[in-house]
Design a protein around this nucleic acid. Structure first.
Lengths: 174, 174
DNA sequence: TAAGATTGACTCTTCAATCTTC
DNA sequence: GAAGATTGAAGAGTCAATCTTA
C-alpha cells in the first residue's frame, strides 16, 4: 500500500465537493479525510518500527502505560479507559503480551473482580528499546518545524475537545 | 467506547516523555498519538452517520469516487490506487456494495484482466443522501473556525507530503 | 512473464453473552 | 443486581497464493 500519487486526492475531492454545491462542508470533509489518511500513514510507520519487537501500537501503548505507572501495575479496566478501547481489546492485547513474557496477570488483592496487569523486567527492557527506535524513526522525524508541530497538536486537541474526548475543564493556554 | 475523561491523556503522556528524558521526541509523539486518537473519534462519528445507509467510510469513499467519475465507472485497481488501500480491500468492499445493489461489476471491454465497478441509479441516490447526512452531522460540525480548519488541513497536508503520500511537485500555495 | 483481481488464512477490533466477585 | 473481565462470533484489513488474461 504505497506508491506516490501524482496529485493530492484529497485536494481533488475538495474540488468536487465545491462543484457539487457543498462548499460549506468542503473544508470539514478535507480535514476529516486528511486525518484518516494521516492515520494510515502514521500507523503504518509505527507498526513497521515496532515489528522487530513483536509489538503493535496498541500493545506498545499498554506497555508504556505500565512503565509510567507507579508500581508497574494497572487494572485492565483502567487501561481500557485511558486508551479508550473496548475491554475485549485490552484482554486480547494483554494476553498476547503475556505469552511474550512482557506482562504478567494477577488478581487484584483488594477487589477480586479486577485483574492487574504487571510489567515484567523483560517488558521494561523491550519498552525502552522500542521507544528509542520509535523516537528515532518516527516521532523525531515528522518533517515539521517545532512551532508547526506544536500548532498541529493544539489544533488536533481542539478537534478532540470538540468531539467530547475529554473534559476541557480549564482550557489552559499554557 | 466513550465516556469523557477527566484529563487529557495525551498531555499526560507528553509530560512523561519529558520526565524520561525524551524531550526532543515529545512533540512528535504527542502529534502522532493525537492523529491516531482523532481518527478513532472521527471514524466513529462518520460510521455512526453512515450506518442507516448500510455503509462504512470505506464503502462510502468508493461510491463517491464512482459518483465523481465521468461515466460512473472505474477499474478496481484505479480505485485502490486513489484511496491507497489494498486490492483485496477493494474487492470485498465492492462485493458488499454489489450485494446491496449500489454497484455493478462488469469486465473491462478493452482489457479482460480488469474489472469495472459501475454505480447504479440506486447507488447514486444513496450516495447523495448519505453525503447530505454526513455534511450535516460531521463535516459541517467540526467545531473549528473556518481559518483554523484551513490551517489544520494545510498542516496535515505537510504531514502527508513528509510521509511521501503524494508528489508535491510544485508545492503551490494557491 | 507480468498485470489485475480474487481467495483463504490470519490478525485486530467490537459486540453480545457469560462468569465471577462485590 | 451491578461491576469487571473473559469468551466466541462477526466485520474489516492485510498478506501470500492462485487464477485469468494480455
Amino acid at each position: 500500500v504505497s506508491d506516490r500519487l501524482r496529485v493530492d486526492p484529497i485536494a481533488e475531492a475538495r474540488r468536487h465537493w465545491i462543484e457539487w454545491g457543498w462548499e460549506t462542508s468542503a473544508p470539514g470533509m478535507a480535514v476529516i479525510t486528511s486525518i484518516v489518511r494521516c492515520n494510515q500513514l502514521v500507523v503504518g510507520r509505527v507498526d513497521a518500527a515496532l515489528q522487530p519487537f513483536g509489538l503493535t501500537f496498541a500493545r506498545y501503548e499498554i506497555l508504556m502505560l505500565l512503565l509510567f505507572s507507579r508500581r508497574g501495575a494497572l487494572p485492565m479496566g483502567k487501561m481500557g479507559e485511558r486508551l479508550q478501547v473496548h475491554p475485549a481489546s485490552v484482554t486480547s492485547a494483554v494476553a498476547q503480551l503475556e505469552t511474550d513474557g512482557l506482562v504478567r496477570r494477577r488478581r487484584h488483592p483488594e477487589d477480586g473482580r479486577s485483574v492487574l496487569a504487571i510489567v515484567t523486567a523483560r517488558g521494561r527492557r523491550v519498552a525502552l528499546k522500542a521507544t528509542d527506535t520509535l523516537n528515532e524513526a518516527v516521532f523525531g522525524a515528522i518533517g515539521l518545524p517545532e512551532d508547526e508541530t506544536e500548532g498541529l497538536f493544539a489544533l488536533l486537541r481542539q478537534v478532540r475537545v470538540g468531539a467530547g474526548d475529554f473534559a476541557d475543564e480549564n482550557a489552559p493556554l499554557r
